[in-house]
Structure formats: C-alpha cells, structure tokens
C-alpha cells in the first residue's frame, strides 16, 4: 500500500458517491384532457372573509360581501317571517324565558344554539320566543365580538320592529326594518356604540344560485359543538341540488337529472367535498363527489369540485367545474 493507491482509492470512492448522491430531477407530466366543462374559482381569501354569490347560468359572480358586516337576517317572503343568524362567524342565540328584556343582563344560565346548517325553518336558532340574547361570534382575527340582546316587537312580511341593547341595557334602540320581496333577506348589523346598520349583503334573489361562505356545522360528539366550516350553500328561493352517488360525472345526462328528487336543504352541497389531511397539512378534494343542481331558471347542471387553493397555494378558493345538461 503506497500513497498513490491510497489517493486513488479515496478519489474513486468519492467520485462514485458524487454521481449517486444527488437529488434527481423530474420530468413534467402531460396535462390531462379536460372535457367540455366550465371551470370557475371563487376566492374567499385564506381567512374566509368573503361571502360570494354565484350564478350558474351566466357563470358570473352575482355579488359579494364581507362576512362580518351583518348579524341578523330577516326573511322577506314565506308564510311565517323568520330571523337567521350570521353563521359565518358562528353566532349563537339564546331564548330568554322568565325575564323581560330589561331584566336579562348577563349571559349566564342561558342555553345558546347555533344556526342549523340546513336552513330549515323548524331548526332555526331564533324560533318562537320574543326576547333573545345574541352571541356575535368571532371576527376575522378570532376575537370574540361580544353579546347584545333583542326583543321582537312586531314581525311581518313587510317589516320587522324590534328593540336592541347591550347586555347592561345601554345603547338601547328600537328599530324598524322595511322588507323588500325582491330579496330573500334584509340584514342588520349591531353597533356597540351607535345606531344599527342596515347593510346590503345579498343580491336580488333571482340573480344567483350558489353562495360560497363559512357557516356553522353542528357536531354532537362528544357534546353539542358548532364548528365553522367553509362550503357552498344553495339559494333556497328557487335552486335545488342533490349529491349523486350512483353515477359517474361523465354518465350524468338530462334524462337522469330530471328524474331525481332534488333537495331544498341549502347545505346539500355543503363543505364535505374536501377533507383536511392532518398528516400532510393539506385539503384533499373529493373529486368523486358529484352534484346535480337545478338553477332558478330551471336548467340542470352537473358539478364537481377540483381545488381549494389559489395560484400561490393559499386556501379559501373553492374551484369547481360544471356543465349544463
């Protein structure tokens, strides 16, 4: 063994390693052939600040709103007028029994309920009573927005009249809100230190089919727990939908769709077309979940989701493809 051999041996081993021990480059994949479908992305922002209304027939955004801009919605049509909570920020409502509007000053011993995801009238959080304490839910940074109380004085299809105040009774105001039958709901926003706002949130009721927003899903295990989810709700005015489980997207035709019994529940499409994978820290899309939607003009569409991320990988951009039948 001499110096030269020594040198060469080391050199060869290292050279061999140098070749084998590098990360190998990849080759690009061939883009898939995407059929005759329309692909649309709805940006809600990574913290889901927006509510976005969408019309299938024109493939356009019918309107959008900031989710924290309202607290209560008052229905404009139907036999019994009703009130909804802003589920996008997980608002809660508790009926007050045995106490008057003036007497209720704290949130203790009250039973709070969140808005039910289906939007069915018999499941509403505000139902029956006249005095309620309202939990305003959370703002975009996750800060709790406090409570206020409400007394329903008069409620018809034409107007709503009610009293609002802070829990300590201050900033009390009586408000009358006129209704407009061109909309599903008129909205109000409680203001801690000033007059109640009446913002415009939703576009005209016959101009949109789907709304992309946060809303509350209710879990009952291990206990009653409203949980904020992001998904797609249908316009209960005149849009219906159904998840199809017995046919592939490609095989759904008009004849098949016309024979389906579609659901009026607003969360028929819902949020579960995606799952968060904790081990990979990523939302996975359930491409195999296919929906049939009948829009307000009476056309049938098939629809499925393909993404939840925008171009720079931020969540909050539901992306779907659909086709008119």
């Amino acid at each position: 063994m001499n110096g030269i051999t020594n040198k060469l041996l080391v050199f060869f081993i290292l050279s061999g390693f140098a070749v084998a021990s590098c990360r190998k480059k990849e080759l690009p994949v061939t883009p898939p052939a995407i059929g005759d479908v329309t692909t649309t992305a709805i940006e809600l922002s990574p913290s889901y600040q927006k509510i976005a209304y969408f019309d299938l027939g024109t493939n356009t955004n019918a309107g959008e709103a900031v989710k924290t801009n309202w607290d209560l919605g008052f229905s404009c049509a139907g036999e019994t007028p009703y009130i909804i909570l802003n589920a996008a920020k997980i608002m809660l409502a508790a009926p007050v029994t045995g106490k008057t509007f003036e007497q209720v000053t704290s949130t203790s011993n009250l039973s709070f309920k969140a808005e039910h995801p289906t939007g069915r009238m018999d499941s509403l959080a505000i139902r029956g009573g006249s005095v309620y304490v309202l939990d305003r839910g959370y703002d975009n940074s996750g800060t709790h927005m406090g409570h206020f109380k409400m007394e329903i004085l008069e409620h018809t299809n034409l107007h709503f009249k009610g009293r609002f105040a802070k829990m300590d009774g201050s900033n009390e105001q009586t408000v009358t809100i006129e209704k407009d039958n061109n909309y599903n709901f008129v909205y109000m926003k409680w203001n801690e230190s000033g007059a109640v706002n009446i913002p415009v949130i939703e576009p005209l009721k016959d101009t949109w089919d789907l709304v992309f927003t946060q809303y509350s899903e209710i879990f009952h295990e291990p206990e009653y727990m409203p949980y904020s989810v992001v998904g797609c709700l249908t316009n209960t005015y005149n849009t219906t939908a159904l998840r199809v489980t017995d046919k592939a997207f490609e095989d759904i035709n008009l004849e098949y769709a016309e024979n389906l019994v579609l659901s009026n529940d607003r969360d028929e499409i819902g949020y579960d077309w995606k799952t968060f994978l904790y081990d990979q820290n990523i939302y996975q899309i359930h491409y195999e979940k296919v929906y049939v939607v009948k829009d307000s003009e009476g056309y049938f569409y098939k629809l499925r989701f393909i993404d939840f991320y925008n171009q720079i990988g931020e969540k909050g951009t539901p992306t779907f493809e659909y086709q008119r039948l």
Binding site: P28, Q311, E314
Partner: peptide
C-alpha cells in the same frame, strides 16, 4: 418554505405567507 409546483411545467411558485 413551501412552493406550489405546476407539474405540467415543473415551475415552482412560492406559496402564500401562511404556508
């Protein structure tokens, strides 16, 4: 550091600040 990789071109775009 997270990138969004377009696998048809292998172009990497730096992902949003949250990532």
């Amino acid at each position: 550091t997270t990138y969004v990789n377009d696998l048809t071109t292998l172009e990497q775009t730096i992902a949003g600040a949250n990532e």
